[in-house]
Structures are given as C-alpha cells and as structure tokens.
Design a protein around this nucleic acid. Structure first.
Lengths: 192, 192
DNA sequence: CGTGTTATCTTATCAGTGATAAGATTGATA
DNA sequence: TATCAATCTTATCACTGATAAGATAACACG
C-alpha cells in the first residue's frame, strides 16, 4: 500500500497531507462533516492521531483546505459547462450545472455553506459566473445597463440558483428524472 | 436568583427546559452553534451537566427545539408583515421581511439551514409564503395559471429570497443603510 | 562521507464533550 | 402519610481536538 508509488513526495508517509484531504472529501461525501474527526482520518491513513497536526494547524484549517478543493472542483465544472454552451442559454446552463453539481454531492452543499460565511466577491464560482453574466446581460438588453444594474441582476440570478440548489433538490421538490429540463424551466420563469 | 419567582412550574429548578432553550437561543445569537455545548448551558442555568438530559433525549433533540423556536418566530414576523402590506407589493414585502429577519440575527441563518435538510413542504414560513403567493400570482396574471406553474414560480421566488439572505446580506454586498429600499429593488428585477 | 538541521511522525497526556447508569430529592397523587 | 414519577446529582465512560516532548528519517552542506 505504501511501497508501490515512487512519486514526488519523499517523507515518512509519502503524502499524508493530500491523503488526508482525499479521505476528508470521501468522508464528507459519504457521511457529512458532522461526524468527521481528525483521528478517524489519521487512523484511516495509517498514522497516529497527532500526525495530521504537522500539516494543518487545527481542524478548522484542515476543513478550509477541503473546502478549497470542492470550490475548485465546482469552478471547473462551471467552466466546462460554459465552453459547451451556446451564448443564448449560457446563464441557464450554468445555473443547471451549479444545481446538478450539488445534486450529485448533496453533502458537499451542506458542508460548503454551513461553515464560515463566504465572501461572495472572492468566491471563485461566483466570480466566474459574474463575468459570464455581465457579457450575457449586455447582449440581451439593447439598452445600456449600468454597472450597478448588472450587479444586482447577477446577484439575484445567483441567489436564485443557489436557493434552488438548497430547497428544490435536497427535499425532493423537483422531479429528479427530468432534472435537466425541470431546472431549465424553473430558471426560465425569471425574466432578466 | 432562584427564590424570587413564585411561578407556575413547580419542580426543582422551576423551568429548566425553557431556560435551556432561552439560553440556547441567546448563545447561538451571540456565538453561533459551533461552540455550543450542553454542559455550558447547564452550568449557566445552575444545574449539573446531566440535568438537561431529563428534558431532551440528546443534543440533537435540544437543537431541534431551539430550531423550532426560531422557525416560529420567523413565521410570526412574516405574518405581521403580511397584515401590514398592500396586496400589490405583498410578495416583495414578505421577501424583505425574510431577509431582514436574518440580517438582524445573522447567526440564526447559519444555524437554521446548516442542520439536517429542511422539508420545504412542512416548513411553516414557506407554507405561509406559498399561500400568499398563490393568491397574489393569480391576481397578477389575467390568464389562469396551472397549479404546477404557481408552484414553480413560488419556489423560484422563495429560492431568490432565501439566496439573497445568504449571499447579499452576510457578506456586505448590500448597502445596509438602505436595506429596505435595496432589497425591494433586487426583488423587483425578477419578473413573475 | 558525516554532521547538523528540519520536517515528519509517535507516544503520552490534557481538558472538554455527549451520553448513560445509579442513586438522591422532591412535588404530586391517592 | 405512603407511594410514585419526574427531576436532578454524582460518578463514569468513550471520544475528540490539541499540545508537548521525544524519535526518526530526509535533506543540505561541508
């Protein structure tokens, strides 16, 4: 289990830091963050209970690292969706992509947003969404839009998408067999 | 501190159950739920660490009770807002009321929605909002709306309001001095 | 090659937590 | 007054986050 890889990381365990994060992601995906403990992850990685603290100042710092991984993964998903989408429906496609991301990993949503409040302006998924929305909104409206108007519309759309992911999916409100179509319809009922 | 009241509740402490809930609300409002412990509340109430378990099966059950209190308080706030609102802007007023409720108690939001996923259809604030929205939407649209359409529009509006409370308020996105006006504008950018 | 430095990891150990069992206390009831 | 059940206390448990002190091994440099 250890001797196979002759990789970059050279120390005792090899790459404890990354393995802990991987195990953390896996655990949260399966059981949620509530019952996650550093000791369980340490044991699962075959090290002592104090070992993780060589890599993370405390549990909170560790969870920050896990959070960053998920955020990055979400951002990548959105970017891929963007590249596949036509200009006309790109905002709806991004919204669907966002909702579906959390539909496929419901416990990620809880974990991501139950922690310390996220600063929206430095939250990469929103930053990306904002850029796309700014272009799309200008194209949709003939008249010029002020920066402030664009920002407000963007926040509203994002809030809707975010709220949908929260309420609509996690509680069986939406017909999950037609997820794709359903979400499109829901988002279409907003006129931007 | 104990001998003053000659109230209804007759047992040892008097009314430990309610005091614990009150102390819990107070604690969450001040510090958030993360560092809340049953032992602290017990000590703050002047009883032993095991006493709370005579009233609550476990910590989770206790937090459920606290959650119910907050939910009830939110529902009441919405109902009061409804009664003061004209028919035309009632949906926007309810939205503002929702956002402002959590603006005034930011940690309640985290607590309320970071726990086990809420079943939207039995969540009293949404139930009330749904009833109002159904009437309002029918009045706004000349043409008849199907039940399904109403439900979708309602969910979308609710999702927006909920998302606004999350993103817009907690991260200083909105000008908090003009909170009332700002939220109205934001919600107006949705066409229902 | 060897010596020191440093990151990594282990072994205790601590305080705080949720929770339970066993027994004490007290209000209510008959 | 005697009984009963709700309430509360006193131990006690396992688990957790965290730290200190020491062991180990990779690495840098002479």
């Amino acid at each position: 289990m250890c001797a196979k890889k002759t990789e970059v990381k050279p120390y005792h365990h090899g790459n404890l830091k990354e393995e802990l994060i991987d195990k953390g992601l896996e655990y949260i995906d399966k059981y949620g963050v509530e019952s996650l403990s550093m000791r369980k992850l340490a044991e699962a990685s075959g090290v002592s209970s104090a070992a993780p603290y060589a890599h993370f100042k405390n549990k909170d710092a560790f969870l920050d690292a896990v959070q960053d991984h998920i955020t990055e993964s979400l951002t990548e998903t959105l970017k891929k969706t963007y590249e596949k989408s036509g200009e006309r429906e790109v905002l709806i496609e991004l919204g669907k992509s966002y909702v579906i991301f959390f539909y496929e990993n419901p416990l990620y949503y809880q974990f991501l947003f139950a922690r310390r409040s996220i600063d929206i302006d430095t939250f990469p998924p929103f930053q990306f969404y904002s850029e796309v929305a700014a272009v799309a909104l200008k194209n949709m409206h003939n008249k010029r839009l002020t920066k402030e108007t664009i920002r407000k519309k963007t926040i509203t759309m994002w809030a809707t998408v975010h709220g949908l992911a929260r309420f609509a999916l996690m509680d069986g409100v939406i017909d999950t067999d037609n997820l794709d179509k359903e979400i499109g319809q829901l988002l279409c009922s907003i006129e931007v």
